[in-house]
Design a binder for these strands. Structure first.
Lengths: 339, 339
DNA sequence: TTTAGCACTGTTACGATATGAGTGCTAACA
DNA sequence: TGTTAGCACTCATATCGTAACAGTGCTAAA
């Protein structure tokens, strides 16, 4: 990324700020109407032309003002945006909302999505924290009907999953409890891999249970993906860049595709990451940006959370808001699940 | 609803069918181009004028063809649409997909939404089956950290919920198990009301647990609402009636509002219900129709499932598809949860 | 290096005009 | 009495030319 003169930086910054606010291409004269730069419009024009040559700005057409490119936004985010912190007032409103929340993870995630989307007027996506190496906490086998048993698996950390199994032959509740006890004492605290390795003496039925158990623990079933909480999609669609229904559609279908979402959300993230205009990888997001962060306890359980808006997004606010909410959620995770 | 002559019924039916297929207003001449009614366009014009007088058709403007009104669709659905059954081929494809599914309810619901939206090219919504009177199956209290306990509640029927509670004072795992055993033998099989009534001798801590327990059982916490599975929103947005972004927006925000959804979905439903154009009650859906059904076992556990599309929707297909999927899901519920 | 001035360009808004689909009405016809 | 041909009328839509306008790029002077 080439070096820009101070004045060029100033011009770029102002163009971006004003464009974010108005969604209109910014002309040299317009820029001077609201900002005194001590120079004339001709000078600004020259600088703008230079910035365009370097790829930071474009023209929609000859007689229109300038619009930032993705590269322009990128420069803005990385060089011109100071290290912003969320204003205390905002912090308080957000924290306040979280303090009223209940004690279940699902509610926290729903709340996080709501807070993010409300505060950013954009779409929010939040995934549940996923254990790095899920371990068995407790297994219960409850008989329901004659030939059925309900298998309830509590993970270390508190996640719960259940499966309804068909039995090949009827089994008494007492026997089921015995089996559960045996498996608990054998495998309590272990992860999927250790359980698979540990070849104790087991019946065929127990092997079946273990198969389900390890399947759940290793998380290679698709339900997890559904655990994406979304909110505020309609907010984004109100932005002028989505007036054209084709644009709006691309976005909606992208957000509906689980595969796409998981790809975006599982990207490794350190601190807060900003994906601008799909950054070449995701064509569907050509006019969108995503501000993403991972939250949770590293190496133990982490989830992702972020805001999606038009590239013309207030990055400062977005970054600080996402960081703040991610920190809150991290506290939540380490608090609830223990270290 | 006034009586229509045979020919009027024929005209109304043809206009609706053709309009559903083309999304274009249908003129008298156009109608005759594809259908031979044995009369001239002038006669058709007269019949159309009559149908318009009675409120079954309208004009977008003087020189345009006819478009069905909500009342027209209603007549069509109730009087002209025979009792349609889903073609066997379709039944098989759908059944096939369900047979590949896993054993967890969540997966079934996700699948139902996917199948509905795929097959109807519309948005699908599915809610989890909700117990009429949830009863306690098993309560577990697992200690996590020193001052924390994880409360896992298995409902009769197999639903599982959990809460992470803060203890006022540390408690040993053994004590927690004892307490859980006591509460299980006291309250096993009971619903919230019975538990509240049954005033056995209990400690303050046990009372606290019971408070959470009854709260979960009576379901008066908001997480349930989030248990709405959606799919295929983008399909609907592709329909021409949602080209105008304002229309699209109204729909998206309606579908995002939990309060709105639960209102629609909790409406009492016998058999398959068709809500046309919001039917006065829901302004947001003025150009949409919903085909809805309840599924599950009546008086025990029921959920709702439906398809949302433009009023210009293939009602025959929709009704038969929704009914078929609802039946499959009902089988699933009665099979899994027992009678 | 900056700036004033000016020609140039492409968007947008507007009005005039033509086209065409489809109606409603009237009068004739079976 | 119901049906039909014919015709005037209406209104959305498309096309074209014109004018206004915002903003640029370039040139020459300060």
């Amino acid at each position: 990324m080439a070096e820009l003169s101070n004045r060029q930086q100033a011009v770029l910054g102002l163009v971006i700020k004003q464009y974010i606010a108005t969604a209109q291409p910014i002309g040299s004269k317009t820029l001077l109407e609201t900002n005194d730069l001590g120079v004339s419009s001709a000078t600004i024009r020259n600088e703008m032309a230079a910035l365009e040559d370097m790829g930071y700005l474009t023209h929609p057409h000859t007689s229109a003002g300038r619009v930032p490119t993705d590269k322009g936004y990128r420069y803005f985010v990385e060089r011109l945006l100071g290290d912003v912190e969320l204003p205390l007032a905002e912090q308080n409103t957000i924290r306040h909302q979280f303090h009223q929340a209940k004690i279940e993870m699902a509610q926290w995630m729903q709340l996080a999505a709501a807070v993010l989307s409300r505060s950013m007027r954009g779409a929010a996506i939040v995934t549940a924290p996923k254990m790095e190496k899920p371990r068995l906490r407790q297994l219960s086998l409850l008989s329901t009907q004659a030939q059925r048993t309900l298998m309830v698996v509590v993970f270390q950390g508190g996640n719960v999953r259940n499966r309804n199994l068909a039995l090949h032959e009827p089994m008494s509740p007492e026997l089921l409890i015995q089996i559960a006890n045996k498996l608990n004492s054998l495998f309590g605290g272990m992860d999927a891999e250790s359980i698979r390795r540990n070849k104790a003496e087991i019946t065929e039925f127990e092997a079946e249970i273990i198969r389900h158990l390890t399947q759940l623990l290793s998380g290679d079933d698709e339900v997890q993906i559904n655990q994406v909480y979304r909110d505020g999609l309609s907010e984004v669609l109100q932005e002028p860049e989505f007036e054209k229904s084709s644009e709006a559609n691309a976005l909606v279908s992208a957000l509906e595709q689980p595969s796409f979402l998981s790809e975006v959300l599982n990207a490794p993230v350190g601190a807060v990451q900003v994906v601008i205009g799909g950054e070449g990888r995701w064509r569907e997001l050509s006019s969108c940006s995503i501000v993403l962060a991972r939250y949770g306890v590293d190496g133990f359980a982490t989830g992702a959370l972020g805001v999606l808006g038009p590239t013309r997004m207030p990055y400062g606010r977005a970054i600080s808001t996402v960081r703040y909410v991610a920190d809150l959620m991290s506290d939540m995770v380490s608090d609830l699940y223990g270290e």
